[in-house]
Design a protein around this nucleic acid. Structure first.
Lengths: 256, 256
DNA sequence: AAGTGGTCTAGACCACTAT
DNA sequence: TAGTGGTCTAGACCACTTT
């Protein structure tokens, strides 16, 4: 036994190292997150007050707040004005999936090939006209593309663009590299916002042929509509991907 | 013409109203977001420096920083130390989908019914044993549930739980209301983290029968594995939902 | 009344980038 | 060197909750 063994929980072994490059508020957030992960604080428990954390770790109130806010953003804790800060229980509903896996497929690299299958001027049908805010029969540009990795088809993309020669985006979109632009940080400065929908579908006969598989096959379908800065719809389209070629993964709760 | 019409862009009509309940940093973030949405700043453009914003809107540096950080979190702008703050272009890859639509289905309400189809003790097969860190043949609890809305089957859920009478979660999970708990904020304080995977699949014959549809049918499959605070896997399971019953929607870029 | 989180100030110092 | 974002302080005041 040593002198320092008395009430170890009251005197935390964690401390903030001001000589590190890591900011104090990040260090404190990590300390608290680790204490929660280790079970020192359990879901529902109240964390020490901000004033206590200030004293205990020798930082100013604003720095403690930044740490707490980090943990709030990460859904680790929740705050209640006048009551305190509490550890949150795991919530499945707060899980979120991003398109990172999808972006990987678009990364230009060895074996990646985006092929233009078809570009045509076609009159808008009722559904397309409605989405693009056109009259039925007005011209649209219909583009079909295929993305392959190592000669193997992965993604089929169909898209309708408004037909307006004044808009430079038309030229840009017809460039097959434009697809990568949507997934990287390229020149789509004309688009203000977009609406995305993910569906599970059965491949049609045509789609199965293009994607080199057999029926019946399940697929992911990502529908997208983009708007310019005047809130005019510019394009509507669908990414179609064989279900056995992609899935989406995420984590909830405390990592490690 | 009036006197005040000279150089309207230099003297912003926007201001921060200190009498409002809305915090100054939120007001400033909204002002900047609106200016971007209106095209005053375009993707790639540099925003006024933080010092300029301090003077222009009469707030302290920390308040300006909070506003900018809000916009960074919303992927509206990005900051570069020593260079400035810049408006981001739309990026499809940064879109994220959450399970809010799914949670709606689980909300206990009129017509919502979660029925326990089956509970059995079964020995773990190779795949399940591996995921639950058991030996092949060790006992697991196999649970099948069906969620319906207005007599119509929506969700089919299969789950394997580790068989450990000491763990209270076993009792909790066997309660049919536990499913809602995962999607609400109920008593799952024993779970530290989870891994989720969304796939598109074809329904099996059994699944199609349970979900009252015909083959072939596409479906979403959400696989989940949960771990306790000792990082032991507690359960592995799958939510299976007819594709025509759900889809996931999200937005990217600037709303309105 | 006491304690809690929430906002905000008016600076300071630092790290980085451009010129 | 000047300008930029990034961190941090040591308080102040407020709103809210609990006792």
């Amino acid at each position: 036994m040593t002198i320092n063994e008395g009430s170890p929980a009251a005197q935390p072994i964690d401390f903030i190292d001001r000589s590190l490059y890591e900011p104090a508020y990040v260090q404190l957030a990590n300390i608290l997150r680790r204490q929660i992960a280790e079970g020192l604080f359990r879901p529902g428990d109240q964390l020490p007050s901000e004033a206590q954390l200030c004293r205990r770790y020798g930082v100013s109130p604003m720095t403690v707040r930044r740490s707490i806010n980090l943990l709030v953003d990460q859904d680790v804790v929740s705050t209640a004005q006048g009551r305190g800060t509490f550890v949150k229980a795991l919530e499945l509903s707060q899980a979120s999936f991003d398109l990172q896996e999808l972006q990987e497929l678009f990364k230009p690299g060895a074996g990646t090939d985006i092929r233009l299958l078809d570009v045509r001027i076609v009159p808008a049908d009722a559904a397309t006209a409605h989405r693009l805010n056109l009259k039925v029969g007005e011209n649209t540009i219909y583009i079909r593309r295929l993305l392959s990795k190592n000669e193997e088809p992965i993604f089929y993309h169909r898209e309708y663009l408004i037909y307006d020669p004044k808009l430079p985006i038309v030229e840009a979109e017809m460039d097959v590299t434009a697809l990568q632009g949507l997934f990287a940080n390229v020149d789509n400065a004309l688009l203000k916002r977009g609406e995305l929908t993910v569906m599970a579908t059965l491949l049609t006969e045509d789609e199965a042929k293009i994607l080199h598989t057999i029926l019946p096959s399940a697929a992911f379908c990502l529908e997208h509509i983009f708007f310019d800065f005047d809130d005019r719809p510019i394009s509507v389209g669908w990414f179609i991907c064989r279900a056995d070629r992609i899935h989406f993964t995420t984590k909830v709760g405390l990592d490690q």
